[in-house]
Write a protein that binds this DNA or RNA. Sequence first.
DNA 1: AACTCCCTATGCTCTTTTGTTATAGCGTAT
DNA 2: ATACGCTATAACAAAAGAGCATAGGGAGTT
Lengths: 306, 306
Amino acid sequence: MDFRQLRTFTCVAELGSLSKTSDTLRIAQPALSRQIKLLEHELRAELFTRNGRGMVLTDAGRLLLARTSGIVRQVDQIRDDIQSAQGPPSGRVVLGLVPTVSCVLSARFARRCVENFPGISLRIVESYSGHLIEWLHRGEMDLSIIYGRTADLHLAAQPLGRDQIVAVGPRGCGLSRKKQVEIGWLLRQRLVLPSHSHGLRALIEHAAALKKIKLNVQLEADSFRVLTSLVEEGLGFALLPPSSVRGEVADGRLETAAISKPLSRELVIASPVDRPASIATTAVTTLLREEVAACRKEGLWDIKLA
Amino acid sequence: MDFRQLRTFTCVAELGSLSKTSDTLRIAQPALSRQIKLLEHELRAELFTRNGRGMVLTDAGRLLLARTSGIVRQVDQIRDDIQSAQGPPSGRVVLGLVPTVSCVLSARFARRCVENFPGISLRIVESYSGHLIEWLHRGEMDLSIIYGRTADLHLAAQPLGRDQIVAVGPRGCGLSRKKQVEIGWLLRQRLVLPSHSHGLRALIEHAAALKKIKLNVQLEADSFRVLTSLVEEGLGFALLPPSSVRGEVADGRLETAAISKPLSRELVIASPVDRPASIATTAVTTLLREEVAACRKEGLWDIKLA
DNA sequence: AACTCCCTATGCTCTTTTGTTATAGCGTAT
DNA sequence: ATACGCTATAACAAAAGAGCATAGGGAGTT
């Protein structure tokens, strides 16, 4: 069994055909045919069923694919790690952030990362917890800041702290940082919430269920920008961490108020458990923690340490 | 980067010399020399420092070795898994058991395993928790029954239940299954305990510390056989799960009594988190759970479900 | 049913890689 | 100083792999 074989196997499995793979990998089709055949011979198993229009995986093939993808990734990572070991960290790192964290952290963290680690190519993906968790599992992402329990998620988690959730309303709605609003009252207002794939929504639904309140959600917005603009337009209240609307509040476009029964969410840095972190990923993780701490110190992010 | 290269690299790293590796792998030394050189060239890093008496790993080499060993194991495992997928499970599985569990389970589980999975070659290793955990981490073991917290051990754990600990004394010492003994009294008796690398010892030390009792340990025995025989000779009391001395109690060679403040330990099936379980390992794990349940049903093992 | 298209399999040749033998070079220890 | 043991290099042989041309075979079309 050979890396080259595993790579072509993966490619063939994904493209479903030797000839397409031949185009992609710039290797003549007969060579691929023979590589696959040798692999099948060595493993004593049919990996594909051939038909007139291509090749489809057998059960054994699917099993192999599931195992190899991780291995190929690990091998690629070794190259980066060896380079990182003898100089500054280098390699690709994919970082996932939920929108409310991203809007605080993305820009300044990206800047610090390119300053500190010119060798690292960082990719920041902004999406909802659900998606981030899936990508971590699939190995397409190296680390994420997500919230919620990670115990049953098969992910390694380092706690960052608790983020408070406040009520957010349009200018002139009467919310004030000085005065708490009643959670029962708030949940009965017209609300603008993210959809169910978002962790914040689950948190709010849970709070409402506890109070036996049926939420009045006429507007859902999955984009964070859209959500805040809807609130600005006076179309409802939102529940968000204050750090995420700091700018709008300063401009006077939005107002916030603490909630009587504090809602909060636990933020964690999550990473896959099924493969070791690269040196570059470790470096990024450390810097990320530093940056979160810096935000806290500068008062940009009122996260509570656990 | 090639598997062959990684294998020879691993071997050279362990043996510390090309010529020894040449003998071991039955490959001429210059071929090995070139493989390593190509690997170094590809990774753009010195992996070894050469000297008159062999080759020693550099930092980069140590890093590569750490990453490689896991990958080579995973690749080997794939072969077994593909075989297992198209017929009965096959491959090597290394199972670790602590002595007190081993003496209940080893024989009957080994029999069931060869009956159910003739394709699997099972190796049972009996040792103390500390060693089992280390071997799991090093990847030399696939799963273990151990006790104690696994949260901070970087291991995946499936709970099996709680095992009661009872007082064990020689024939005629007055212990009775009907009558509880006072824990304070028990811990002040002369005790025969396993050494500190054993989880049971930690448990007992902890209980003594809570009661502020200094243990009177004149005899330590790391072998389970030795320990019970010392108790039989009247050299002291032991604290053990009753299942482990069932035979001796039935023969009248030992007596047991419950302890006033129940001591118990949480048993878990632990497995490594840094690599996926093989099909064979999964099959063995399932059978192991079944067999533990069967023991419980037959009254051979009074484990309390969590 | 015949035909066409697209895909994979196979035989052949050529290139590249890998292993072996022989030997040179070098550091260490006696 | 010299002998020993280890690694590096050169030259050659063997094997593996890639490319080319082409045969064989389903799937859809006319």
